[in-house]
Write a protein that binds this DNA or RNA. Structure first.
Lengths: 169, 169
DNA sequence: TTAGGTTTTCAGAAAATACTGAAAATATAA
DNA sequence: TTATATTTTCAGTATTTTCTGAAAACCTAA
């Protein structure tokens, strides 16, 4: 194997191992990495071969990646098999990940908190007030995080980055 | 069980279920939630009883929470057992979570990318250049996220929030 | 010391998650 | 339509993660 292929393989493998820390399974992370560094679109069979995974596994994770918007199906004239290519624009990738995390992390948390806050409103004891206050403080924060992710992910990169850097100066 | 206790129990249970989405195991999330809404510090036995978990499980997760800085051990005069209480300041909680995510997510990613970028520098082919460029773009982004988390988490809440809100207006 | 109380560790069990492979469903060409 | 290629589904299996419970280690008071 040539050096280039070795580096790619190394990247794909290690990125897959990182996946679990990011809340995605190994295969999904590896497929994403593979497509990110592939100059051309790949078929399910290409991916099965390259990563040594089953057809079912490849299929499931390809569909999941498509549903996230991290990869897309493309049609190649004269070919029957589906081909997949990754979104390579890093800002778009960032926006997609931010949106997904909001959906999976902060929104459910806010839902749980809101529900409990609602119920705690009625409690008049000092301890009840304290609970209400603590949950509300948490929820305000989670909502703020929600709003920030929402807004950031919907902006153009060029409009935002200079401002962020200035803010942190 | 009175209404207040019910609400707390509900919160603890549901927060625990959310934990997995945040990359924390259920018990750790539940212990954290329990201490967050507990007006007084609790012992390992209190927690075992309240959450129906084993001593080993409680002990391990309490230690993990302490190591994150989300809870602390406190000594109560005349008592032999360790007592634990949660950090309740939401901004501090946010900073801790941000720091930990940086450590577990963006730093390892950056490490993998840097290493591959280093190796890809040598490759002279067009495809090699393309790989190098793609990995670099990814790494720039991950590093930026790193820097932002770092800076945000080290600032006072009062200094930062107004600016963030203005930025997103 | 030492005896009893408390915490830590860790091997094995249980639960949750991910993967395989083959059958079923679907799509396309002849 | 029929034959063939391709994709999807899912029951069963494998792997990983989490949890238990009891033994070992560690404290503290007497």
């Amino acid at each position: 194997m040539n050096e280039l292929a070795e580096i790619k393989e190394d990247f794909v493998t290690q990125w897959g191992a990182l996946g679990s820390q990011w809340g995605v399974n190994r295969t999904m992370a590896m497929i994403h990495a593979l497509l990110l560094v592939s100059p051309k679109a790949l078929t399910t069979d290409d991916i099965m071969l390259e990563l040594s995974v089953s057809r079912g596994n490849a299929n499931t994770n390809l569909r999941e990646l498509v549903s996230w918007g991290l990869i897309r199906q493309i049609v190649i004239k004269g070919e029957r098999k589906d081909h997949y290519e990754a979104e390579k624009d890093t800002w778009k990738i960032f926006c997609i990940v931010a949106r997904e995390r909001k959906r999976r992390e902060t929104e459910p948390a806010s839902k749980v908190l809101s529900h409990c806050i609602d119920r705690s409103k009625k409690i008049k004891s000092a301890e009840g007030k304290e609970l209400h206050q603590q949950l509300t403080a948490l929820n305000d924060f989670v909502d703020l995080a929600n709003t920030i992710m929402e807004k950031v992910a919907s902006k153009e990169q060029s409009a935002l980055l200079p401002k962020v850097l200035k803010l942190l100066a």
